[in-house]
Design a protein around this nucleic acid. Structure first.
Length: 586
RNA sequence: GGGCCUCUAGCUCAAUGGGCAGAGCAUCGGACUUUUAAUCCGCUGGUUGUGGGUUCGAGUCCCACGGGGCCCA
């Protein structure tokens, strides 16, 4: 890891950088140009709107700047990561499928997110806090340090008063900039759902609120939207504003009307397209990515780039666009749990470094997929293979970087599983033992080649074991489960011929002579040998193999009702002697 | 209508500042006293969507066209 600080720049030596290092180079170079003395720390920023569950797409909004900031800090350069909680945004609609929420929340549409009651049963004070909380927890577990800024706090404390007054003074210039992107056709239907953070975007409904033309009751443009003092919503329109006194009068759809001094008034905010560049300037943001929805002409990113310099005297941050994050595999309960998988729900089945790796290994403009289905197994396999290669020193520079960024940050190392048993194996074992710790322990100690002095404990398998347990319970397809039959298949038992009956008797007789993986292994393979009159150490012939196979199929049918299943020693050990006897008794 | 992204082995995808096109899975062959979507070894597999251009050199950069996805209108 290079730790150089560009005295005169010109360090182009390496071609083995990943996208994170390349972006960090750019950010550092741009920052140096502007602030040669390095008096000001570099600022990377994210914006999150807690208008509903914060999903895995939003996580990219955070992890992209996080990785860049982390790289900058690893180089010993001061860098701060801001997360702006856009919790002063208007409540746009009632999200579907959120537990504890019904249509009655519609009456809060138009209020700030921090003024909307949380879902029923929530321990949090309001809507925004309720949805921020799991994200805050996930960021902690992912090792993301940041400074959170509540926009509600900023606006209501008057932090942005000067900027607000400036924007109002300059309203006609702002209007002009916005106008460059308005086509004659859509001048009346501007985008109201443009909150900049890829807010799930599904908003096919209702009359959009025209933000570009906010509050233009008089036909004049105002870049500011007050919340009504009576009903609390932003269904307001400014009817008069005086630059000298900052006296502002506005009316509301609820019928009320208010006259305030804007230099003292704090229940309102700049419209999004003006708000964003104002904050770039206010915080001195050097890096902030944005979702693909900003690739369109006239997007808030493009417009903001003009406004930040023309109005607010700032500079547009470096800001790559990141592509969408796809999801495969759904939680069984997803519809009742609010639909979209969130970072917290992902961390129930992904080890934290693995989830970081998904976001670190691809450039932001590449679409990525977070898998909750069986592809998760492959992902774990890939990750384990990478970890082994890194440990052996056989990886390329870029792979090594991706791994390093995932397992640790500049500040700390994230928890890893000491004994990374294959996720596939873990889920299968958890499934057949139905999570019983004693059986789990027996099976896993047989699977993990452990030092007899220091036997493997279940703790050595954490946190992965917990992920496997959660996956089996919530994501494993019903048909993939191995379920012991609840009662003997008497019809099948009665139809057995003498040879089959004898084989079952032999198995049951020997069952508890050596109740262990090894003992059961030699037993199940030995039964057909005994029947054929062969010694136990006989090498298998084709004929013997065939009879073994027949025997196994019989056992599978009697135990789980199908022709195949988990390895029989594993299955028998997991089932326990009582259940085995119950199913095989003649 | 405008914009962004994408197209690489049968499948899923790598190749991240132009420098010998690579993995996993699948197939096939071999090994294995252990059946499972087991493990190990090996083989096969390619006109990098199409056509041009820049370059000593292009999957990579530029232009056009075609397929797919997304955003905005």
């Amino acid at each position: 890891m290079s730790r150089r600080r560009g005295g005169g720049g010109a360090e182009q030596e390496s071609t083995s950088q990943d996208w994170v290092a390349t972006l960090a180079d750019e950010v550092i170079a741009a920052h140096e140009k502007e602030d040669p003395d390095g008096a000001r720390a570099i600022v990377c920023a994210s914006g999150l709107s807690p208008s509903g569950p914060i999903h895995l797409g939003n996580l990219r909004e955070v992890l992209t700047p996080h990785l860049v900031a982390d790289e900058i800090r690893r180089r010993g350069i001061a860098c701060e990561h801001l997360i702006s909680w856009d919790d002063f945004d208007r409540y746009r609609r009632v999200p579907k499928g959120v537990e504890g929420v019904d249509d009655s929340w519609a009456e809060h549409v138009g209020k700030p997110l921090t003024s909307v009651p949380p879902p029923r049963g929530s321990e949090y004070a309001n809507w925004a806090e309720h949805f921020k909380a799991p994200m805050i927890d996930a960021l902690e577990r992912l090792g993301v340090p940041y400074r959170g800024i509540s926009q509600t706090e900023m606006y209501t404390s008057g932090a942005y008063v000067e900027q607000t007054l400036l924007a109002m003074r300059e309203r006609s210039r702002i209007d002009g900039v916005l106008g460059r992107f308005r086509t004659r056709k859509n001048a009346e239907t501007a985008d109201s759902d443009d909150d900049g953070e890829g807010d799930d975007g599904v908003d096919p409904d209702e009359a959009p609120f025209d933000e570009d033309l906010a509050g233009s009751a008089s036909g004049e443009y105002f870049p500011y939207k007050p919340y009504c003092g009576a009903c609390g919503t932003d269904e307001t329109a400014i009817v008069a504003y005086d630059d000298a006194t900052t006296e502002m009068t506005f009316t509301c759809a609820c019928g009320s009307s208010q006259t305030v001094l804007l230099r003292e008034f704090t229940r309102g905010k700049l419209v999004w397209k003006v708000d964003w560049p104002m904050r770039w300037a206010y915080e001195g943001v050097d890096f902030e990515p944005s979702g693909v929805d900003h690739s369109s002409p006239g997007s808030s990113y493009e417009v903001g780039g003009l406004l930040v310099s023309e109005i607010f005297g700032g500079r547009q941050p470096i800001g790559p666009m990141y592509a969408f994050v796809g999801i495969s595999g759904q939680a069984k309960m997803s519809s009742s749990k609010g639909g979209v998988p969130t970072p917290s729900s992902a961390l129930e089945v992904f080890e934290a470094p693995l989830l970081r790796w998904l976001y670190a290994r691809r450039r932001p403009n590449q679409a990525i997929k977070v898998a909750f289905d069986a592809e998760l197994h492959r992902l774990y396999d890939e990750w384990d293979a990478l970890s082994r290669k890194v440990a052996a020193g056989t990886t390329g520079a870029i792979e090594t970087l991706g791994h390093a960024r995932s397992v640790a940050t500049a500040e700390r190392t994230l928890p890893t599983t000491p004994q990374p048993v294959s996720f596939r194996t873990l889920t299968s074992v958890v499934d057949v033992t139905t999570g019983d710790p004693e059986q789990l322990g027996r099976l896993l100690s047989g699977l993990v080649p452990g030092d007899p002095e220091e036997p493997v404990t279940l703790d050595d398998l954490q946190p992965r074991l917990g992920c496997a347990e959660h996956w089996v319970e919530h994501y494993m397809p019903e048909e993939s489960h191995t379920r012991l039959l609840a009662a003997p298949d008497t019809a099948l038992v009665e139809s057995l011929d003498d040879t089959d009956r004898e084989s079952l008797r032999l198995l049951l007789d020997g069952l508890e002579q050596d109740w262990s993986l090894d003992g059961l292994t030699s037993l199940v393979y030995g039964v057909p040998k005994i029947q054929a009159g062969l010694p136990m150490d006989t090498k298998p012939t084709d004929e013997l193999k065939a009879s073994q196979r027949r025997f196994f199929v019989l056992l599978y049918r009697l135990l789980v009702g199908s022709d195949t299943g988990p390895r029989l020693p594993t299955l028998l050990l997991a089932a326990g002697p009582d259940a085995v006897r119950r199913q095989l008794r003649m």
